[in-house]
Simulated assay, not measured.
Amino acid sequence: MNKVPMTVVGEQRLRDELEHLKSEARPNVIAAIAEAREHGDLKENAEYHAAREQQGFIEGRIQEIEGKLSNAQVIDVTKLPKTGKVIFGVTVELINLETDEEVTYRIVGEDEADIKAGQISVTSPIARALIGKEEGEVVLVRTPGGDVEYEIGKVEHL
C-alpha cells in the first residue's frame, strides 16, 4: 500500500485523537450502553440504540485512524533542505494573475488540510501544480471552475 505523507504535527493530532477515543469516548459509550440496558426492553429503547450507534462511529474512527497511522510517512519539514522549490511542508504565496489577489497556502498531508487555515492537501490540484516549481514561476492550475494562472510570489521553508 502507498505511504501517505504527513507532517509531525498532523501525526501527533491523530495520535491524540486516537488516545482520546480509546481512553475516554469508548469507556463512556460502553457505560451508556450498560445503563440503557438496565432500562429494560431493548427493542423500544432509544437510548440503547443511540449509544450503540455512537459506539459504531467511535470504533470506525479508531480503525480509520489506526489505518492512516500505519500508512503514514511522517515528514519532519524542519529537516528538509531549503531548496527554494515548492515541496511538501512549505508555505507558498501565490498571486492570481487575473485578479492580482494574493493567497498563502501551506502544503500538508490529506488529513491535515484545512482551507480556512490556509493548509492545502499535497494531493489537491493547486499543490500538484505547484510541486517542484520555484519563486517567480507562473503555474496553470486546472480547477473545476476553470483554469487559473498563479505566479509563485514566495516559498517559505520552516
Score class of each variant (00 low, 15 high):
E53D: 13
R142D: 15
T7P: 04
T78R: 13
Q119K: 11
D111K: 04
G67L: 07
Y150F: 15
G89K: 02
S70V: 06
G10V: 03
I120Q: 04
K82M: 09
G145P: 00
H49Y: 07
R15I: 05
I30C: 02
K22F: 01
R15A: 08
E112C: 02
N71L: 14
N71T: 08
M1A: 15
G10T: 03
N45T: 08
I65A: 07
P144A: 10
I152W: 09
N45D: 12
P125G: 03
V77M: 03
L14R: 03
Y150T: 00
P125R: 01
D41M: 04
G40E: 11
K43F: 08
G132M: 14
H49P: 00
V139Y: 09
V141D: 09
K3D: 05
H49W: 12
L42S: 13
R37F: 00
I58H: 07
K116Y: 11
E47C: 01
R106N: 05
A36N: 04
I120R: 02
K22E: 15
E47T: 01
E98W: 01
N28I: 00
R61C: 10
T123N: 09
E135R: 15
A25P: 02
A46C: 02
Y48M: 08
I62E: 11
A25S: 13
V74K: 01
E98F: 12
I95Y: 01
T78L: 14
E64T: 01
N71I: 03
D76F: 11
S23Q: 14
V90Y: 02
S121Q: 07
V138Q: 14
I95N: 08
E134Q: 14
D147E: 15
A117R: 14
D114V: 03
Y150R: 04
Q12L: 14
I75G: 03
E102A: 13
K43H: 05
V9C: 02
R106K: 15
K68N: 12
G60A: 11
Y48R: 03
M6S: 05
D16I: 02
G109H: 04
K79M: 14
F88I: 08
E101A: 12
A34N: 12
G10K: 01
I126K: 05
A129H: 10
E64L: 13
V155N: 05
Q12W: 12
L69R: 03
K3A: 07
K154F: 07
E17Y: 04
E101F: 11
P27N: 08
G153A: 13
T104P: 02
L97P: 03
A127Y: 12
E93I: 05
D111Q: 10
I115M: 12
K154A: 00
N2P: 12
R106Y: 01
V86I: 09
G136T: 06
E134H: 08
P5I: 06
L94H: 06
G84K: 07
R15D: 06
G153T: 07
G84P: 09
E151M: 15
A50T: 12
T83S: 15
T7A: 06
D100Y: 13
I107L: 10
E93M: 05
R26F: 11
G84T: 11
T91S: 14
E47M: 08
D111A: 09
G146T: 00
A50E: 14
D41R: 03
A50W: 02
